[in-house]
Design a protein around this nucleic acid. Structure first.
Lengths: 198, 198
DNA sequence: TTTTTAAGTAAACAAACGTTTACTTACTTA
DNA sequence: TAAGTAAGTAAACGTTTGTTTACTTAAAAA
């Protein structure tokens, strides 16, 4: 049997992400994707059921899965609060800095009903994404180190400013002066920690 | 001359927002929109140049323009920092609470290259959106009331957690218990203020 | 009341869409 | 080395896309 060409599989994913980041999710078509990857449209259907399946797998596995790994690298839920948050902030910043395409699709995941639904279903079926982070926050709330908010609120307070700052980083990428440096990120991290601590 | 039917114009906008919020920007088509609005596709082209023009005007005028008005209602850039931020947080929360469709399209604006570009061009052509807020932040930084970050950083720190919390509000809207109440929003606002103040 | 004119419609356009059919290629295994 | 088989291709399927053409409607202006 002829084996699957992994290079082609990778090309499909890479070029799909590229089109989404450069032209938008609403302008990704199977034919355009096939053409840019120099393959037949049929080939995509060997690897993915249909367009929705491709988008969902890109979003869940390629984007969120890879991001989860990156955030948790060197993180331990037993770390003290400040160290843990700083670690995750730096991991997130460094990961997305060199993965803008993943960042864009992740952002689309917050708007697109299809990706939203897929995210919820995946959390139910295979356990929550970022589970160690959830436990970390719960522990610290229980230990009265941080304010006693629901986990979703903690997540919003701690991580959404960071994701917004990463967007600003991309805005300044091709300009003479980058204002979002690692130093600024760490200063912002301190501000967030100060705000959330009891 | 036969006058433009304003009800039809309003229907186009309302139903476009509805489709975007329920099925996603990537599933909005002119024919679907016309059908659901009970008009001919041609009628849309009397009021808008093309699909992109419709999307951009929806995003800039209907969503951002209306949101800007709502945020600034009762806000004065001369307010002291805490009062001003609290005012804007409550205005934002109350506005989007009853305008989920506007919220969804605003979120799409952070991903979609088309809307992103339109936003930047509009800021250059007609002056920045949320200009009073920018001046408010600059003043407070200059007066050493808050940390001396670039304005974009202040904006990320202060407003992105709020927008994320509004998303959580919608997630809990049809569940037995709403966790994102006005009380929680105000507590989060205090946390943010505490973090950013010098 | 009649004329004028833009608003609005129904139907259609070519192009692009997601997907499939019919066929060829290339690698495994017997 | 030959047979078997899934991977891969080129071309096409029927639909839907954004947009336009040709026509009708309705209200302001004369």
């Amino acid at each position: 049997m002829r084996p699957k060409d992994l290079e082609k599989e990778e090309a499909i994913r890479a070029i799909a992400l590229k089109i989404i980041a450069e032209e938008g999710l609403e302008n990704l078509s199977m034919q355009k994707l096939a053409k840019e990857a120099n393959i037949s449209p049929r080939t995509i259907y060997i690897k993915y059921e249909n367009k929705e399946d491709l988008l969902i797998k890109l979003f869940i596995d390629e984007v969120l899965g890879t991001y989860e790994k990156a955030v948790l690298e060197g993180f331990d839920e037993a770390m003290d609060f400040e160290t843990g948050v700083r670690k995750m902030w730096l991991n997130t910043f460094r990961y997305f800095k060199s993965n803008r395409q993943a960042y864009v699709l992740m952002q689309y995941g917050k708007s697109s009903p299809l990706l939203n639904k897929a995210f919820k279903e995946r959390n139910i079926k295979e356990g929550q994404f970022f589970a160690p982070v959830h436990r970390f926050l719960k522990q610290n709330a229980k230990a009265r180190i941080i304010k006693n908010f629901p986990n979703e609120v903690h997540r919003a307070l701690i991580f959404s400013p960071l994701l917004d700052l990463i967007n600003e980083y991309f805005e300044y990428k091709d300009r003479p002066k980058q204002i979002i440096t690692e130093k600024v990120i760490l200063e912002c991290c301190e501000a967030i920690i100060k705000g959330i601590k009891l």
